[in-house]
Amino acid sequence: MSTAAAKALQPRAAHQRDLLRQMLAIRRFEDTCAELYSAGEIRGFVHLYIGEEAVAVGVSAALTADDSIVSTYRDHGHALARGLPLDSVMAEMYGKTTGCSRGRGGSMHLFDVSRRFYGGNAIVGGGLPLAVGIALADKLRGDSRVTACFFGDGAVAEGEFHECMNLAALWDLPVLFCCENNLYAMGTALVRAQAQTDLALRAGSYGMPAWPVDGMDVLAVEHAARSAVGAVRAGGGPHFLELRTYRFRAHSMYDPELYRDKSEVQEWKKRDPVALLAGRLRDSGECTDAEFQAMSDELTAEIDAAIAAARAAPVEPVADLTRFVYHPEPK
């Protein structure tokens, strides 16, 4: 948002408009990615976060720049909410050297260690042990950082999830486990994959505070995340949020969606997190339709510029194929 507008608004309203802008940025970015994918400009596996934006934006709002984040293959939202420059994320989608992972990772592997963003991990559950270890390092050094670890409902079935819950609780580590329960792991509905579908209850059995949150309402997410992060930072050990959300699009770009009813998707779309907050701010007069449109146009221009920059950016030379296998690089 423009600084003039920010000054004119109450801090609370300015903050909420900022949350809206962040969610809208993710939405526009990903709508564009879907088009670019269809056009063949970006490739590989691309998992869209559309419908789940309130989770990344709400949790990130509760973190400081010094906290750490571990993400999944569905990582565009986490990365943008963390403040990775849109340009660098777009360039990564194009596999260019200006990408946040120098183009080596692509959509599923966004990294930016300067922002303590420890990456998109594409092995389900694979990020949890990393988050536990980052938090262990912080604890050993006496730092007051929190590590937020995102993962899906599907990951809760993996052994690594349970091993990590136990380890984090046993060692009292400063981790915020953020379970994005969107009711499906690819085509497998939660009820057909989990004997106990109350995921917060299961996390609670490891002796850590855990509760469900309306993941479509960014303000509810932020509120829950603030209290959890505060408690973790104060030495309260790991906390677990079950963020109840829904993915509006296919699991990845190839998915005939045989496993769910269109009507179910329509029902959830009524609680679209972007529309929900936009509606509230419209009703309170804090973001008019015209202002929303201006915000949207601004984002479109930013994304267009990012695409132009990504297209023009260089690729890594083939001679550098085996770089980044060891560090420091052997000569």
Partner: peptide
Amino acid sequence: GAEVPMPYPRHLEEAA
């Protein structure tokens, strides 16, 4: 195969 975890860009994957 080249001894590198597979890079994402097409030209590097082909080269690997």
